[in-house]
Design a protein around this nucleic acid. Structure first.
Lengths: 341, 341
DNA sequence: GCGCGCTGTGTGCACGTTCCCAAATGATCG
DNA sequence: CGATCATTTGGGAACGTGCACACAGCGCGC
């Protein structure tokens, strides 16, 4: 009961009905699609809605429909990753925007710890959201399976780990992208092309490595194990990876790095080691994250179409909520040439 | 009606009541505080809840109470800023966590454009959230006033622009932090200390500049206008600012930068210009954002206690929702010495 | 012994919406 | 011309919860 800004009772569907001279039922029908409503009534109701400033009470609607008309955005990453990687922000932004077009709010769920994971799982399976957008580069956690088994509509960003799982997902074409980038590096005349991979317990990480190896083999370049080190998409693991590469193959002349964030780390290490980029060593990243433009030299990278990815995630999730059977969506990547190659 | 994972009807308060052998009212009382309930009934109800796996239906509750038991996190920044600045992620994480303790979900609202701002304002004023956590470094937008006038509980991060506004906010002590950092730079023996300010149409930006000037004056060092350039907290504006500083005062020996992100840009420019940090030029940042550790050399900076800031924002907002009158909260900053000074 | 206050419990009502069904109207068809 | 059908409308019921109220039992003081 604050003294300032007392909020009055908002208009209900009753008020609109009275104002328009029709019944609640008719107003409701106008609100939900407008089938079996005469044009005259349609118009009268819309006018009444404008006049009263009526907005539907979502709680009342949800109570009767059983839907919440909201979805969760679940991020199962340690918080350092969430702080470091702007890709999450890009996805968040994209999903928020795509959902806004359907007037669906997004509930943010950050599961950094095991406790949070449990709490959030319970929240979701209690029916408080209609579905879940799952983002988790390192999807080794059981949360996807758990939610899927509970019958919660679910779309992952990137292919989840369990092969047997029937979880829908949206991803960039990792293998093809890796192939393009490796081909690009070879086309520059480089032959000692190293790679810093993503986490190899994730399908995405494995695919990017596979694409790299394929192209080298096709080009008749021997795949040297000392030229491949693994990382976890973090900047620091890029630094470390480049250090090991330089130690093992001092005369390498190119590196394909499985994420832009790691690529920044690679650039740091190369600079410390006195290597010029791209003259001595060409560096190719992956993602085209905001980090790619912020680095110097600016990164040549494989663009993941994050705006399309998030739009597709939302589209697939809504289809699934609508009861449709949905499949995986794979989107093409695109080579973006900048200063580092 | 998907074939897999059919969700059955969840238990209601009725089921719990029957299971426990009491009435709905008693169950409800146990749920909401447990006053006027005998220990025996208390126990029976709790056991029944555990057995049935009952979870309260928030929609039904909201319908009757008029509260939504959710809050919005509103970010009114262009999307580039959201992508670039990890501080937003830190705040987001902190608020999510603090709200989780109260079992309150967070609705993410990103208002990058004018259209989105309108849509979101309408959503909020329609009563779909109980309150709003507002984050907006450049709070020149009318959204705060608008929501506040509509009687929506609101807490801003950082002092909003309008002086007359009675909007509650939580902020770090900008002036004091700027004083500490400037004093630190002087203590290193530096006398030509430049500054890259934040946006000077925001209280935070103005305060940090004021602190800087105060300490210089107190120390008997003349405040030179050519040593002060303004930025907008972005990395790029740091680069540009440092370029201007070097052009105007080539022999400057320290820079106080009003954000870590800008400080990274300053480091880039200094390196390009061949200046060593900290030997030739000492650089002090502000925020202690994740960016401070990721830069090289690692940034000396003023730590904003983001975890406490977000916790306080949530505390104040909940108090305001509870009808209390709330005031501004100012939290102390702390000097974190690293490699750049 | 009466009234009063405090604790503990059950019940009716209301919140605002959607859905289902009945009924009215006009059009079409055999 | 009567019957069937599609369209349009209104009203009752239900969703699951919290709250106000009524009421019972008990102890206490006057």
């Amino acid at each position: 009961m604050s003294t300032t800004g007392g909020r009055r009772r908002p208009p209900t569907i009753h008020d609109v009905a009275r104002e328009a001279g029709v019944s609640r039922g008719t107003v409701s029908r106008v609100l939900n699609g407008g089938h079996y409503v005469s044009p005259a009534a349609q118009e009268a109701v819309n006018a009444a809605i404008r006049r009263t400033g009526y907005v539907v009470n979502r709680h009342a609607r949800s109570l009767i429909t059983g839907r919440s008309d909201s979805v969760g955005f679940l991020l199962t990453e340690p918080q350092e990753k969430f702080f470091e990687d702007p890709n999450f922000n890009v996805l968040l932004r994209g999903c928020t925007q795509a959902l806004a077009a359907h007037d669906i709010p997004l509930l943010l769920m950050l599961a950094g710890t095991e406790d949070e994971r449990r709490r959030i799982t319970r929240y979701i399976t209690s029916g408080h959201v209609d579905g879940v957008l799952l983002v988790s580069s390192h999807s080794g956690n059981p949360v996807a399976e758990e939610l899927s088994e509970a019958g919660v509509p679910l779309v992952a960003c990137g292919k989840p780990i369990g092969l047997g799982s029937k979880i829908s997902y949206v991803a960039a074409d990792d293998r093809d992208g890796a192939r393009d980038m490796t081909r690009h590096l070879l086309s520059l005349g480089r032959r000692r092309v190293g790679m810093v991979t993503g986490p190899l317990d994730t399908p995405g990480g494995v695919e990017r490595l596979a694409g790299y190896k394929e192209v080298l083999t096709e080009a008749g370049v021997e795949v040297d194990d000392r030229l491949v080190v693994s990382g976890d998409y973090s900047r620091l693991s890029g630094e470390r990876g480049a250090e090991r590469l330089l130690a093992q193959v001092p005369d390498l002349d190119a590196v394909f790095v499985a994420s832009d964030l790691m690529a920044r780390g690679v650039l740091t290490t190369l600079e410390r080691a006195g290597r010029r980029v791209p003259e001595d060593v060409a560096v190719g990243g992956f993602d085209d994250s905001p980090a790619a433009l912020a680095s110097s030299p600016e990164l040549t990278t494989m663009r993941q179409p994050f705006d399309r990815i998030s739009a597709e995630m939302v589209r697939v999730l809504l289809a699934q909520i609508g009861g449709e059977d949905t499949a995986a969506v794979i989107l093409p990547t695109e080579l973006v040439k900048r200063e580092s190659t």
